[in-house]
Write a protein that binds this DNA or RNA. Sequence first.
DNA 1: ATGAAAGCGCTAACAC
DNA 2: GTGTTAGCGCTTTCAT
Lengths: 346, 346
Amino acid sequence: MPTLSEVAQLAGVTAATVSNVLRHRGRVGAETRQRVLDAVKTLGYRPHLAARALAEGRAPTIALMVSSIDNPFYPEFALAVERAARESGHFVIVCNTNEDPATGRAYLDQIAGTLSEGVLVTNANLDFADLHKTEARGAPVVLCMWERPQEPPGLHCVAVDFRRAGELAGAHLVELGHRRIGAIVGSKVSGIHAARYAGFVDALHAAGLDAPAARLRQAPDSVQGGYAAARELLEADPGITAIFASNDLPALGALHAAADLGREVPRDLSVTGITDIKPAREARPALTTVAVRTAEAAELAVGLLRDLLAAAPDYEGAARTAPRVLVVPEPRLVVRGSTGVAPMRE
Amino acid sequence: MPTLSEVAQLAGVTAATVSNVLRHRGRVGAETRQRVLDAVKTLGYRPHLAARALAEGRAPTIALMVSSIDNPFYPEFALAVERAARESGHFVIVCNTNEDPATGRAYLDQIAGTLSEGVLVTNANLDFADLHKTEARGAPVVLCMWERPQEPPGLHCVAVDFRRAGELAGAHLVELGHRRIGAIVGSKVSGIHAARYAGFVDALHAAGLDAPAARLRQAPDSVQGGYAAARELLEADPGITAIFASNDLPALGALHAAADLGREVPRDLSVTGITDIKPAREARPALTTVAVRTAEAAELAVGLLRDLLAAAPDYEGAARTAPRVLVVPEPRLVVRGSTGVAPMRE
DNA sequence: ATGAAAGCGCTAACAC
DNA sequence: GTGTTAGCGCTTTCAT
């Protein structure tokens, strides 16, 4: 692979000039510029990104920490991140923590600040202490999809009003006449989704309904998890006419459980999710859910990271600003086939 | 961030020694080693990967080119790639081409050989010419999930016997007594899946059946694509009792089409896919499909890339070996709920 | 408008 | 065993 100085030699100039031409820096004579450009072309020169990273003191990559791309949400998010990152010339290194803090720490220790200039974190079960350490070392960290805008995490973040999302789903079910509504929320490991449930409960309260613990189940963030929880709920209390799930995957599982229990959706049972991942649109019936603007969240996160990077090139010490919180525009209800008016009381 | 020489200074040695300690190279006195290790710890030193990459002439990353992580296959594959890559100390940069050759080219031009030392390519609709150019520049390329082991692409690759996969699916349907079987294969853009269809046809022929063009449809590799194609097939010829889809996503779409047309699966209609992606296991009924060993393919691909890298550090010119073809162990039929014995003729 | 020179943080010969 | 010396390919002041 040709180097800068080879190009320089061919063009009869010095490496500095070639660099200037390529980076549109400094003033270069029109004719010289042309010679350089020609040399670049004939040699097929391409800048060596690692060398540039070293010289500039910053690598053109960002690390995206995810818990497991096994969950369809992450690829969707990653896609949006990559698109946004590319606009600022960044490549995305995907780091799968598998929900294991040690793996996450290993990733952070290795690349943050040395091979990637910033870090984006989705719910990857990382130690906040590790994230702070990473920041302290000079690599900005942005938390994505933070659940509680009102309760900043002490790190830069992009937050989604998930309480509101839960409220929208709850209100929708209430409006349809449902009175006995089961709820499935995340488990300890998949994130408890307290804000989402709180919003749901708010909606019930607003309608004078209560949300007894007997109608609440925790489940992993998966189809299977939701399936099991929904079965439990429905078997324990056949009077339940609707299920609120704090995430789409478990909601999809609830759909399956309903089918297996001989309950037709939405005639006998309504189901709602939160997020609006692709499989929600493809389910039968398609899932009514509260859409979270994933792509916008990704763009905000990348933008925030870029701001932080620009504000403080080495980002050390006092240059660090107070944690910033960006809120993703309000989630919105998407009514599809999985919800309908509550069946008549008998 | 502390540097090598800061560590060296603190330990009262020179940078070279610290490097040796850290890389377990050369002979270093036990006591010195300890002093160095202490210094590393107190300073919280971490090697600067970009600097190391420059000095070593190779970056610790590989690029994974995918068409769009929108399709659940890619995340599953990417996950396996990342796992395997980590074992050889590589990070994975995900490059989404969106099926656009120009985007792919831009990615290759930028990172191959400069920020990533090798490239893994899934069906990303890249120009082979671009891939060859990349190889010529010194960055090995491995094609993943090549469709026809018998027909090497002129590049290193990991191949899957998809013809065999099609044959397994076809034979399964034939055995169940199906005689009029519709087929849905990939479209031009999503890959035509000729080998898979050929295998399917072989299975029919082996049973003395034919596969008329009237029972063949092309569709994009998506649920919607499969849905539309299946509807067409079923409406054009209601006598069809089974559908062979060359991929899981369209097969899932066929399941939906059956439901909409009032045909119960598997009683009135059987459906098969190929790959065994996660949504296939989660569908209702679960999809009968031919499982392709995705994780193994990923491991083989990463292993092959590593071999190529080891064989020829700069990988230029004559060092390049003849294209190697690794075949993923035979695909296997996974019978689930979407297939059953053919309905009686009336 | 262009060149000279220093240096980013690390590795790798080779010398002592 | 440990230090010295060159770079890796690029960017970036600072002269000219």
